[in-house]
């Protein structure tokens, strides 16, 4: 990263998978998923535990391959460019596709400021750092709460604030896509509401893919919902993708209907 990051939101953000399968050793955890995520919208991945939704998400920024014995087949297209193509730099890919995790995980030894600019901010001088951090923290709706304690430890913040700091950290890299793995799973209802509101705003700038085990949340925050289900071999399959309003009211697959009406999972 160079000194001054671009100020306008990047135009990209077209993300799609093509016949994507993910493996842990010989176990096929995600099988033949082809899905095109809608640009600058929130896509929710829903499904029962163990259906491969988190694994699918982790394939989208090449994080899956860091797990021992894990591998991927098929393609993931970011702006028509296969991120798994031989010679692609996974570090560069991951800077274009940010990620927020299930549990808030700010870097405990860095200050709030340094957390916000953790991606490439090390070489900036203090003023530039604060500038970048302010932009990111405002985008994550956290600036007003932390602007007077930027040098403090992030561990002093509440869980919800920590999670928004993690969002700021991802946003500061000016990615095109934001992946969120159950971003509110460890938060209380009020903090959850703040994050959900934030997701809607962030979708104006980023293509968001969010895993959630909470169907109400999917219904509240997403434009598109994808339903996944593990088959008899434990392989996660994509069952149905549709506009959220349609999927929750008139699902076309009976398994989707069973799931959203609470008949299993």
């Amino acid at each position: 990263m160079t000194a001054a990051p671009p100020t306008i939101a990047p135009a990209g953000g077209a993300l799609a998978t093509d016949d994507l399968s993910a493996y842990y050793g010989t176990l096929e955890a995600v099988g033949n998923v082809s899905i095109a995520f809608r640009r600058k919208s929130v896509t929710a991945l829903i499904g029962p535990s163990g259906c491969g939704k988190t694994t699918l998400l982790r394939c989208l920024n090449r994080l899956h391959e860091l797990t021992f014995d894990a591998c991927v087949s098929g393609r993931v297209l970011l702006e028509d460019c296969d991120i798994y193509e031989w010679g692609m730099d996974p570090m560069a890919i991951r800077r274009r596709i940010g990620m927020v995790f299930q549990r808030p995980n700010p870097f405990p030894t860095l200050s709030i400021l340094d957390n916000a600019v953790a991606c490439g901010g090390r070489r900036l001088n203090r003023r530039a750092k604060i500038e970048v951090a302010e932009r990111a923290l405002r985008a994550a709706a956290l600036w007003d709460e932390v602007k007077d304690k930027l040098t403090r430890s992030p561990l002093q913040l509440s869980g919800g604030q920590q999670q928004r700091l993690c969002i700021a950290r991802a946003v500061a890299a000016e990615p095109e896509v934001l992946l969120m793995d159950e971003p509110t799973a460890s938060l209380d209802p009020i903090a959850t509401a703040v994050i959900e509101e934030l997701m809607a705003r962030l979708a104006e700038r980023f293509t968001i893919v969010a895993v959630t085990h909470n169907m109400q949340q999917a219904a509240r925050v997403s434009d598109v919902t994808a339903f996944m289900l593990a088959d008899a071999d434990g392989t996660g399959r994509l069952i149905e993708v549709d506009d959220t309003a349609k999927l929750f009211t008139k699902p076309s697959d009976p398994r989707t209907e069973d799931y959203i009406t609470g008949r299993f999972g």
Partner: peptide
Amino acid sequence: DLREASMALGSTHWETATRV
């Protein structure tokens, strides 16, 4: 989580080990 957070920001293994 912490390692993955660092890797997901586009850090190398080395940066993750030494800075996080």
